Computed example of a mutant assay.
Amino acid sequence: MDETREKKMTIKRTSKYKSDIAGWLIILPSIILFAFFVWEPLIESIRLSLYSAKGMQTIEFVGFDNYAKIFNHPDFAAALRNTFIYIVWSLVIGFFVPIFLGVLLTETVHLKGFFRFGIYFPNIMPGIATVMMWGYFFRPGPTGVLNILLEKIGIEPQVWLTNPSWTIPLIILTMTWKGAGSTALIYMANISGINPELYEAATIDGASILKRVRHITMPSIFSLGKTLLILQVIAVFQILYEPLIMTNGGPNNASISIMQLVYNYAFRDFNYPMAAALSVMICLVLVVLSGTYFKITKEKEY
């Protein structure tokens, strides 16, 4: 009996090892590609950030001097401040709009498919084309589309994107128009999974739409909202081409982001070590945010 049991255990271990090897062989190409396109550039960026360079050719080891130069650079404080302002405005404007649209789509009875397509349509457009279109829309002076429309009702042309107080909110408005539709559909799918008997019971008790949303819908999408909030913060922290195309970081660095500062170091000043150093700093922040995201999603699974 003991020999038979031992043989069975040996067969199980062998089959387990074979299945493990097969699994590793399946994912091995993905691991190699991931290491080549992610880990190797990351390690090279860390190495480059510790050297002075002429172009991409390293000259001498300087330690953390590039990091110190970044903190002392006059644009760093503005870029860091603006990045957090982007995040705040994205939560004020962009976080609640998809929730509202998702609830509205769920409560819509007629032409639901048409409204789904209309809300998702901006996501189909290329990002650069969207930014350029809204840039023409908010162009200051008499040639801007919005100013032309306002002139028809007797309102003087406004400066819009050249007003430092309005630049970041208008860029966030553009991003919200572009991305709210897909997030709204995620909320709508989550709301559709709520037991309809809850809504029926609330309707029988005389609950209005607002009360049904407040007491049934919102508690049900709370966990999803936490997850999407962290993902939104991670995405907005890496904002680049919207301010780059619409304002080029202006006026007077009023809309420059931390990622645009990396772009300026690398492709305007050709200072690749400082660009690498700032990229490493951004990577550390994103690691913290990603860790928070995984912690929240793990709690959601439990």
Rank of each mutant, 00 (worst) to 15 (best):
F61V: 07
H110E: 03
E6C: 04
R139D: 07
E242K: 08
P243M: 11
G193A: 12
E44F: 06
I172C: 06
V103N: 00
G144D: 12
E107D: 05
K12P: 02
S255T: 01
S49Q: 06
N66G: 04
I99P: 02
T4K: 15
Y86P: 00
N82R: 05
F36S: 13
G154N: 10
M9A: 14
A202V: 05
A35L: 15
M188R: 04
F294H: 03
A201K: 08
I148E: 11
A78I: 08
V97A: 02
K18G: 03
V62F: 01
L289M: 11
M246Q: 04
Y136F: 14
N271K: 03
T14Y: 09
T130S: 12
W166V: 03
W39A: 08
L173Q: 06
L210D: 02
K18C: 03
F71E: 04
Q232F: 00
G193Q: 06
A202I: 11
I239A: 13
V236F: 12
Y86M: 08
I204Y: 11
L80H: 01
P41Y: 10
G135S: 13
V92I: 15
A129L: 13
G118D: 03
I168K: 07
V159E: 13
K54I: 07
M56L: 15
T83G: 10
A266E: 01
I209H: 09
Y272W: 10
G250M: 02
Y120E: 04
T143M: 13
N253F: 09
N252T: 12
K7N: 11
D2L: 15
I153S: 08
I46A: 13
T58C: 09
E3T: 07
L229M: 15
C283G: 14
Y199D: 05
D75W: 12
K178H: 08
K178Q: 12
P164F: 10
Y272A: 04
M133W: 02
G154E: 04
G23Y: 02
S220F: 07
L224H: 10
E242D: 14
I191W: 09
V159I: 15
T10L: 10
H110K: 14
A189E: 10
R214C: 06
L224K: 00
N271I: 04
I204M: 15
A277Y: 01
S208D: 12
V159P: 00
L284N: 05
Y187M: 00
V280A: 01
P219H: 04
L261H: 04
V38F: 14
W134G: 03
W166R: 01
K211R: 13
I124W: 07
A189T: 10
